[in-house]
Amino acid sequence: MVDLRSNASFWERAYVWCMGGVNWHDPEEGGPECLNHVSEFHRRVEIGIGVVVTLLSLWIGVRTCQGQDQIVHSKRPRGPYSPSGGKMLLLVLFTLIFGIEVGYKFTSGHIIYLLYPCHVNSILWIYVLATPPTWGNVCLYRLILHFTHGTLAGIYFPVDEVLKLPFERETYWLQHYFLVIIPVYMICFERWDYPPSPKWDISWIFLSFSAWSFWHFVVMHGVSVLTLANIGHMLCAAFSDPFRGPYYRMIGILHQLLATALSGLFVGSVTCLAERIFPQGTPNRTDPVKTASQSKRE
């Protein structure tokens, strides 16, 4: 738990809340030793490669997405959107869980760790649950469906040994389980309003990977270099990383692209299963993403 003097300035309080709980004596949490595990030139080259990969993935995703037939059947009739009770229940429960998680970060002085992908993913899911299915929201929904591999990594390889506050570890697990439950629920029961990307559609894999790569190489890595906090292990590799070494970030590009593709396969598999178990069986409606792209071309 962080300690603040009663006469501390705003900037002192902000620093303590953001990074006051970081153990600078542990190289895995950050510090000069973590930063200097490779030369500055090596780091700049890796950042450059990461940015190029991000832009290339974005280009491939946009090029392959245009002109595709993405008609999705709908069982909800046209008219004003009314969110379902299940969606509202998930919104209330998950907002409460994430709010508690944010409170723990303030208390422990780890606000900077809210830049972790799972926390950003949580914010995006709360937004999707709270808003109607517009063209932009459906696009965002399809992107974050392909981020499921990050949640599964947090479940299978948890970093919960630093969670010391009462029930902080339980909140961590609740948050990650909900990050799996929500997309499965949305695919099963909300796919007429939030249609997943078509099966075997590589465009959303590359679009999602470009966003994932941008967040890691530009945002998390950039903030890590500025603050010396090892956010998402972008400053230096975790001791448990099997690819630990000077090129672990480059290897990460390959396995994260594969993981994003596997997330797309997971989404496609759950969609196929949901269509069998929960058939929609009523009037059709075109995919909002496709409809908007067609109207723009016209």
Score class of each variant (00 low, 15 high):
residue 232 G to L: 04
residue 194 Y to P: 00
residue 77 P to N: 03
residue 85 G to D: 09
residue 10 F to T: 15
residue 189 F to W: 06
residue 227 T to W: 04
residue 8 A to D: 14
residue 263 S to V: 06
residue 10 F to I: 15
residue 263 S to H: 08
residue 70 Q to L: 12
residue 206 F to P: 00
residue 242 P to F: 03
residue 88 M to W: 05
residue 222 G to Q: 10
residue 151 T to E: 03
residue 228 L to Q: 15
residue 225 V to G: 00
residue 172 Y to P: 02
residue 159 V to Q: 07
residue 4 L to P: 07
residue 152 L to G: 06
residue 103 G to L: 09
residue 240 S to K: 14
residue 218 V to Q: 11
residue 50 G to C: 05
residue 102 V to Y: 01
residue 289 V to K: 02
residue 23 N to W: 03
residue 190 E to Q: 13
residue 214 F to V: 12
residue 152 L to M: 13
residue 207 L to G: 12
residue 108 S to A: 11
residue 52 V to P: 00
residue 89 L to G: 15
residue 241 D to C: 09
residue 277 I to C: 08
residue 178 F to K: 04
residue 159 V to K: 01
residue 123 I to Y: 02
residue 10 F to V: 15
residue 282 T to L: 10
residue 96 L to R: 03
residue 192 W to H: 12
residue 15 Y to R: 14
residue 166 P to D: 13
residue 72 V to H: 13
residue 140 L to Q: 10
residue 12 E to M: 02
residue 74 S to E: 07
residue 278 F to A: 11
residue 240 S to A: 14
residue 70 Q to N: 14
residue 151 T to I: 11
residue 219 V to G: 12
residue 75 K to T: 14
residue 224 S to Q: 11
residue 173 W to E: 08
residue 187 I to V: 11
residue 216 H to E: 14
residue 243 F to V: 11
residue 10 F to P: 02
residue 237 A to T: 12
residue 59 W to N: 02
residue 15 Y to E: 10
residue 12 E to A: 06
residue 121 N to A: 11
residue 146 H to S: 03
residue 15 Y to D: 12
residue 198 P to N: 03
residue 77 P to K: 09
residue 110 H to K: 10
residue 7 N to L: 04
residue 83 P to S: 08
residue 30 G to A: 09
residue 183 P to R: 04
residue 275 E to H: 09
residue 160 D to G: 09
residue 293 S to G: 00
residue 265 L to P: 01
residue 16 V to C: 03
residue 217 F to N: 09
residue 133 P to W: 01
residue 14 A to T: 13
residue 131 T to P: 00
residue 76 R to I: 12
residue 79 G to I: 06
residue 181 I to Y: 00
residue 18 C to G: 10
residue 231 I to W: 05
residue 233 H to V: 07
residue 7 N to F: 04
residue 282 T to N: 11
residue 67 G to S: 07
residue 192 W to R: 06
residue 12 E to S: 08
residue 127 Y to V: 15
residue 2 V to C: 08
residue 34 C to Y: 01
residue 102 V to G: 05
residue 199 K to N: 10
residue 60 I to S: 04
residue 244 R to Y: 07
